[in-house]
Design a protein around this nucleic acid. Sequence first.
DNA 1: GCTTGGCACTCCAGTGTGCCGACTGCTAAG
DNA 2: CTTAGCAGTCGGCACACTGGAGTGCCAAGC
Lengths: 354, 354
Amino acid sequence: MNDKLELDKRKAFILATVVYEYINTAEPVGSVTLTQKYNLGVSSATIRNEMAELEAGGYLVQPHTSAGRIPSDAGYRTYVDRLMQPESLTKDDSRRIRDEFREASRELGDVIEQTTRLLSGLSGNLAIAIAPSRDSHAFKHVQLIWLSARTSLIVIVTSGGVAAQRVVEWSADVAADDLTRLSNALNSRFGGRVMEDVGVADVDAVCAELHVNAQIRDAVRAAFGASREPGEPEIAAAGAQNLLDQPEFHDLRKLRAILRIVEEQRTLYDLIADELAAEGSATDPAPHVRIGHELRADELSECSVVTVPYRFGDRGVGMLAILGPRRMPYGRLIALASGTARSLGDHLNDVEIR
Amino acid sequence: MNDKLELDKRKAFILATVVYEYINTAEPVGSVTLTQKYNLGVSSATIRNEMAELEAGGYLVQPHTSAGRIPSDAGYRTYVDRLMQPESLTKDDSRRIRDEFREASRELGDVIEQTTRLLSGLSGNLAIAIAPSRDSHAFKHVQLIWLSARTSLIVIVTSGGVAAQRVVEWSADVAADDLTRLSNALNSRFGGRVMEDVGVADVDAVCAELHVNAQIRDAVRAAFGASREPGEPEIAAAGAQNLLDQPEFHDLRKLRAILRIVEEQRTLYDLIADELAAEGSATDPAPHVRIGHELRADELSECSVVTVPYRFGDRGVGMLAILGPRRMPYGRLIALASGTARSLGDHLNDVEIR
DNA sequence: GCTTGGCACTCCAGTGTGCCGACTGCTAAG
DNA sequence: CTTAGCAGTCGGCACACTGGAGTGCCAAGC
């Protein structure tokens, strides 16, 4: 690898064309194909010389001696960063996104899931969505509901919708009045706060004031704990079967590795967690692309991921991602992910509870 | 096919052994293999004659002239119905099932999903679960919760947990008191009923009595409608990547067909809906096996499905299913599905809201 | 000095051939 | 009815061969 290699105009054009051609055909690109299909004004021998230099510079690789070239990670990187022309959404895609969100659910979890189905359908790849952490939601309401002497329902509502709902069973009878009083006290205490600032200590304090018994206190504590999801962010993925169509996944081992990653929410989350962290502080949310080994996972060394953050409320940041082969139509996918992220953010802010 | 062919003891043993051997090895079984691995007391030539008759009777087929035999749908059917010895759960499996349900969620949807993960892990195949229709649940509670002047939360609780929860936005201010009064009236009217018997007319009647405006009436109606899930039963599936390990799915076309079925909840539901309907009336819930073409779906002609119903409450019936290649260990899978169904039913009845 | 045509070379992928092994069905004898 | 033996069938594998695509290099030309 020689990062010093400057790309003159012709080299840049050749590199861009090789990447473009390979993305479309999935076949290594040779010098003759290039001169025939694109009007380069020079002969194939010249292209050969240029391609040899591009290979020396680390932008292209040869699968074997007598084959054409395919882009390396660095080749794709240069293409994405400097050579590719940005695309915008087609009319048709815009319409499908708009239609989808017009009748979307108000429930955060459902919306996330629906969005992955939409995005995987449009992109023909695997789509992933992470909901904004509930820590960033505004607290709206908590209600303890008397179901019977020994059972109650606790519901917590944030600006993002119902954040927790759990049925609890008591070992001693409770009175409906007590539950109402506790609900009112908690609501007046927490009103206007962000979930992040609702601590266990506050719950304890309110419970102590009202002389609520330990059992109820623990249940409320647990509900608030769950509502902030310490370890389990809301995440969804869809469209794994799209990957079957890509020739690079006809190898079953690779396919299995991917499916394993996707089926485990934890690994899936890790895959885009760092992007999420980086984005939390960024002022201008922008699409990011990670290519091959940049993903730092051996199983994914032949994949790329496009990530786009979206904003919810004042502080919430969620993430959309598309995972597919490195040989993906970056321009189109970036446009799709960005467009979907924008619509998703708009939708969430529309249905946000104020 | 000649269904009249009676199986004498030796033919039955040979058929059983061929099926057993093929299930374990995935290789066509020849007469010599059979005499060598199993103590039959006769020569391979005799076995050949017997196998030829079994083929004429429709129990075995030959993939090609110079290969051994593999079971036909009818061969598997006979094996499952008459030749196979029932298995019981191993200690280890019992323990894993018990452990899993010990700390299972109280939410019906979560439990269903967790169960499919458990069952797919234990069985090494694709697991499917359908929750009992909410029509059969007992109504427990409905609550309209005031969040702000223009937004409310409607929660409906049945014996199976929270059946519906939706945030609604009003076009005119509503008073908290009105919501409480309506909640109380609805609760006293519906208390003790089964969800099936909670009709739109009843909702309308209560709303009319209390002079509730049309907007609120419609929202409550919609919530009760959703809570009974007219078209969308709760269903989950897990373990598709297990199928990658089976040699019969190394053909990508077949694999894709299966994934398509699984990703679409509708087709997945149809797959076991008839079993569910048949089971609704049966007195003694028992495992069922459907093999190959019995599934009436071309894409699944090389698959089998084991289904086991489970009961919830007085009238609810749900279904567990395992989908895999016809070459599946029927005895083990039936035991696993039955054991899991029993534990699942017990768990649901434990956490049922009374 | 860059470009170009020509040429030798490399390597994959597809095809054809022949052989091996597994299995069958048939026949004739026990 | 069973069995040993045998001829016949067929898939799978190894092997060699070939065609084609593509490269690198070189010497000549602009």
